[in-house]
């Protein structure tokens, strides 16, 4: 390991489900301001890595350290409080609530039972909700019920719900799935913009999209790292070509 200080250290991370190792001795380091993309064929363990970081799945061995906090020992909401935000693969928003309420509910104040009972919609909250809504291209849809948004807009909304918490590590699971070409472009711009000042970990299948946004790429295969580096190097790696095109 180099002397360089990283934001996220994943070391020797292993999880086994009844003997099957979905993630096997994984080592991954992510810097601040870095947009790191994980690619790999189906069943490579990409989503499992995100599950492990955000606490949805408990690891069998290894450590996940984020800004000097050991995440493997924390519960899900404590991990969020430590500055980790995670978007799920299928857009996971509150369909019954308006776009505004979706964002406001995610605002990181009033997170305890009594805090939420006495939470007030101050100008500060209102301004922040509108700011984030504009950033995710939903400024004109604030009063709309979230269920009525298009699939792509739902993806944006979920990203917005994370942004409003200003996480230091933002993890996105297939953010452009189901998006039109234009929406993909907008999303690429969005991700480049919001990546400043934080670390990002993105899972994506769309290679053009990955090429547009990635600072670094890691290829996972059967729970292990197959290759890592910039997009160019990874794409030309014979092992990667073998995994994706071979058999």
């Amino acid at each position: 390991m180099s002397k360089k200080e990283f934001a996220l250290y994943i070391e020797d991370l292993t999880v086994s489900f009844d003997g099957f190792k979905a993630v096997d001795n994984l080592n991954l380091y992510i810097d601040k301001d870095e947009l790191h993309v994980v690619i790999g064929p189906n069943g490579a363990g990409k989503t499992t890595v995100l599950d492990l970081i955000c606490g949805k799945t408990k690891s069998t061995a290894g450590s996940i350290k984020f800004q000097d906090t050991e995440l493997t020992e924390l519960s899900e909401h404590e991990i969020v409080h430590a500055g980790v935000g995670r978007k799920f693969q299928t857009p996971s928003i509150y369909e019954n609530l308006s776009v505004y309420d979706n964002l406001e509910v995610s605002y990181p104040k009033g997170r305890s039972v009594f805090g939420s009972l006495t939470f007030k919609r101050t100008e500060e909250v209102d301004a922040r909700v509108r700011e984030v809504a504009n950033e995710i291209f939903l400024g004109d849809f604030l009063e709309m019920e979230a269920a009525l948004l298009s699939h792509g807009q739902k993806q944006w909304l979920e990203i917005g719900m994370l942004l409003i918490q200003d996480p230091q590590l933002l993890m996105l699971d297939e953010p452009v799935a189901g998006m039109s070409v234009k929406e993909r472009e907008q999303t690429a711009e969005l991700l480049k913009r919001i990546c400043k000042g934080r670390s990002m970990l993105v899972i994506e299948h769309d290679m053009d999209f990955v090429a547009k946004i990635a600072h670094k790429v890691t290829v996972l295969h059967q729970g292990k790292i197959l290759a890592a580096g910039d997009m160019q190097a990874v794409q030309n790696n014979p092992k990667v070509i073998e995994v994706y095109l071979g058999h």
């Binding site: 909401h77 935000g85 799920f88 509150y94 609530l97 997170r111």
Partner: peptide, 28 residues
């Protein structure tokens, strides 16, 4: 009508999203 009420609706709809937005769902 408080934020608590909206969180209840949110939990009914997508419990995991609430949990991974930093709320201790069980205590609510």
């Amino acid at each position: 009508t408080s934020k608590f009420g909206r969180l209840l609706l949110a939990m009914r709809d997508k419990e995991d999203r609430v949990r991974f937005s930093g709320y201790d769902v069980a205590s609510f």
